[in-house]
Amino acid sequence: MDLSVKDIYRPLTFDEAVAAFSDEPSMLPIAGGTDISVQMRAGKFAGAHLLDLSGVLPRSISADGGFIEIGAGATMDEIADSGPLRSVCPALCQAARKVGAWPIQCRATLGGNLANASPAADTAPPLLVADALVVAAGQGGLRNIEAEDFFAGPGENTLKPGELIHSIRLPVTDPPSFSRFTKLGWQREQIISVVSLSISLHLNDQGLVTKAAAALGAVAATPKRAPSVEAVLVGHSLDPAAISRAVEAVQNDITPIDDIRAPAWYRRVAAATLVERMLEEASGA
């Protein structure tokens, strides 16, 4: 069955795409299409005028000064297997390998996962934890958006009309000693997260946490950092008392709702359990 598409513009370069989108911001950008096609099939965006980005988005993953730059068109499969990313941000590689199944991962792009702004977007928690920058391209050139300021609500982002995601920049000058992503869903593979969690920790020689970052997905209107968890970890070793303080603290960082995938109370229990398990793993227990 054909999707309801009025027209599709297929630019030959990224610059052409940016120029066209600036002129006509009502177009619907589509990259891998693995999420948008599902929504279109359900009747959303009927009669859309599509802007096909599949051939023109930057796609390489490259070191650039103190950053790794990931082109918005890099696929989940490319991110999961990227050597440079595995060494500085394993959580992002783990998350990319958990987005849908392998054929989805070979098509879905990082830019698409972020632009869709699902509260459950699996790549979001690791990027929030890593203080990533979303680089937006518009008529006026490129601008950086802090990952934390990028998500505005379910399906809402802070791109301006006519802006496209160009790339994502990860600061990598001080890679953490521990970086993980995990998600909980109805089944182990190919599932939308009921709760997802990423934590990165810097530990000193005495085993004290010198820096902590945590973020969760599917527990609020946007993927979000967990400042209370971070605050109770810094300056302490990962002993059972510190872990149980973090397990309690996460409740202050989340505002889950009841939806088709789980009730709010379940998400609260699950978030606590995921924090506990991940910190136990970090402590070597």
Binding site: R10, G32, G33, T34, S37, L50, D52, S54, P103, R107
Partner: peptide, 9 residues
Amino acid sequence: PSCLVLAAS
């Protein structure tokens, strides 16, 4: 998944 990919792309 060929069901989620537009032929045009």
